[in-house]
């Protein structure tokens, strides 16, 4: 059983569609005068953030509160972690407090997996982004946004993204969003093309279920959705391209390029955007850009994931990864 959500690759097609369908109903709660459901009353969720985040943390917190869970926020800054406490000791502290779920963001790839499978803790673990590895709820909310825009709100129920062509542009090398999206979109039947300067394409991309191109203009007319990624300067320890101007000229999305996309195609961005770098203000503010929608959809997706992992006596989503049992 899926007790944890660590990687988008762990989800089967049916699991993913169930999460999207559940999120569609959760989205309707946002339209009500009282945006709250009693479903997770008495359950405690800790948001354990070792890395900076605005929208993901706020989004998870909103989702947890709308489901009536008790929320504890933990940021590494100003905690015992800055005094040198290990992940294990932090985890055991939380376990002693009787926590039901841990939402973790960590700079080290694999930290959520370690937390879930080490036996330190009984709580469900939800990965809110680990290093350059995975960010599964982001991939789910992106898929949700695409399904709503490309298939339709009600028409989309029960449907996957079969046959849709999705292009992901930018800093693939450092992007957990790209990795999660490739895994999930492939599971949902979409064809993914990655576009980036050769220096920002990771080694081993040949084994990913997607195609790679270095020519944005050739790919744009064949795309149903174009996802622009931020160039992650904070993870860069070398020069990956000559100048920002050259990057943005070859891989940035401006009005002219957007005009070459099919009529129905949408522009997506996981945020935060750097206007003038990977995306121009003209594109970012256009109707075809779904950035604000993605934020709203993030709350619905996270509500769905929390409900499906914590709402019953056992999770509704099956797990494909065999969980290590360790001696505690």
């Amino acid at each position: 059983m899926l007790r944890h959500l660590i990687s988008a690759a762990d989800l089967t097609r049916d699991d993913a569609v169930l999460i999207l369908d559940t999120a569609e109903e959760m989205a309707r709660v946002a339209d009500r005068p009282i945006k709250k459901l009693p479903t997770l009353r008495g359950r405690t969720v800790v948001n354990l953030f070792f890395e900076d985040s605005t929208r993901t943390r706020i989004s998870f917190e909103a989702a947890e509160k709308r489901l009536s869970a008790d929320v504890i926020n933990f940021t590494a800054k100003g905690s015992s972690v800055s005094k040198g406490e290990s992940l294990k000791d932090t985890a055991q502290t939380l376990e002693a407090m009787g926590v039901d779920a841990v939402v973790i963001r960590h700079g080290a790839s694999g930290a959520p997996y370690r937390l879930a499978n080490s036996g330190w803790i009984d709580a469900a673990v939800i990965n809110a982004g680990d290093g350059t590895h995975q960010h599964p709820t982001q991939a789910l909310l992106d898929a949700f946004t695409m399904r709503r825009r490309l298939v339709g709100r009600d028409a989309g129920l029960g449907q996957d993204l079969g046959g849709r062509r999705i292009t992901v542009v930018g800093d693939i090398l450092h992007s957990r969003v790209a990795r999660s999206n490739v895994d999930l979109l492939h599971t949902l039947g979409a064809q993914v093309t990655l576009v980036a300067p050769p220096t920002l394409v990771p080694v081993g991309v040949g084994s990913w279920p997607c195609e790679v191109s270095y020519d944005l203009d050739a790919v744009l007319p064949k795309s149903d959705a174009v996802m622009m990624l931020r160039v992650q300067r904070e993870r860069m320890n070398a020069a990956f391209f000559p100048t920002e101007r050259e990057y943005s000229r070859r891989y940035g999305l401006d009005g002219d390029r957007m005009a070459r996309m099919p009529e129905h195609a949408v522009v997506m961005h996981p945020g935060p955007m750097v206007r003038g770098m990977e995306i121009t203000a003209e594109v970012a503010d256009s109707d075809r850009c779904t950035v604000v929608e993605q934020v709203a959809n993030g709350v619905s997706i996270r509500m769905a994931v929390l409900y499906l992992l914590l709402g019953g006596n056992e999770p509704a989503v099956t797990h494909t990864r065999t969980e290590e049992k360790s001696d505690r």
Partner: peptide
């Protein structure tokens, strides 16, 4: 809710 796996939601 806590006695069964989570159920699929229906429309309100």
């Amino acid at each position: 809710l806590r006695m069964h796996p989570p159920r699929a939601l229906a429309r309100t």
